[in-house]
Write a protein that binds this DNA or RNA. Sequence first.
DNA 1: TAAATCGTTCATTTTTATTTGAACGTTTTG
DNA 2: CAAAACGTTCAAATAAAAATGAACGATTTA
Lengths: 155, 155
Amino acid sequence: MELGVIDLFVAAVRLLGLPKSIGEIYGLLFISPEPVSLHDITGRLSISKGSASQGLRFLRNLGAVSQTYVPGDRRDYYVCQAELKKLAGGFIKEELRPNLEGGTARLNALADLAKSEGGDQAKFYQERVRRLRNWHARASKLMRLMQAFLGESAN
Amino acid sequence: MELGVIDLFVAAVRLLGLPKSIGEIYGLLFISPEPVSLHDITGRLSISKGSASQGLRFLRNLGAVSQTYVPGDRRDYYVCQAELKKLAGGFIKEELRPNLEGGTARLNALADLAKSEGGDQAKFYQERVRRLRNWHARASKLMRLMQAFLGESAN
DNA sequence: TAAATCGTTCATTTTTATTTGAACGTTTTG
DNA sequence: CAAAACGTTCAAATAAAAATGAACGATTTA
């Protein structure tokens, strides 16, 4: 059972361009009824302390995992955030948006270049830049749409 | 100008988890007013014939690039498909959908496992599988939504 | 019809990404 | 307060992905 779920998450996470260990860790948390420590992770998944630590940090930054207090234990324990809305939100905010924003700058630079272009292709270049702008705007809108969609009907 | 556009596509394509060469090739086609041959590609981009050939095949499968007849020339020439709708459609169909469908099978296997689970966690596992199913269904729906959105207002 | 050019394939090489583990500062335990 | 356990960091090792280029069959040219 656990293995199957972990595998599923590994596959899902690869699809998003994230390392396997991230999928393993999230998968383990997802299928564990109880909070899980870094020690548990390295033991159950046979991955190094380093990987586990980095993976957890990444997942915490994303908001996919949060720390939990377990009385009488020195270790840090973690639980997963299992609301699609939150997961997708975190991923969009941390991984996708920054890239899109980076694109804005490049695009402006290109627009300038196209404007100052003299040759025969001037018109063609300008048309291309217009098209890129259009794509960019749509991608932007699409992201908002996705968030809205995944936020519908709580869970 | 060309370099900037190519860079932009390289970045975009990395975001989708595709190799750099794919971005370079598509970028070159996008910014070229005239059809481009494999020979042009290896020359302008300084990439190997092998990469160029494989990259073109991939892009053709996606529907992002198509062959064009150029009279009096033996070589194959290519032009890019610059409609976002088609590009996104190809990507979804060839890259995303197959993965989602693979997930369906795994998910069914897991559901069986969860059903035949005896221990204390039986209930918990079943809840988890239900949740996975829900996510899967949403991802499915989201893909259709994306296609619809990107298909709006021709270009 | 022999030589040249074309595009593809795939074993090898190169590059990039991920994982490991030793070292460290901090906190807890006995 | 010394020893042990905790979690982090980062240089080095490993694994994974992508690019190369030689070999090939097919087509064209001279």
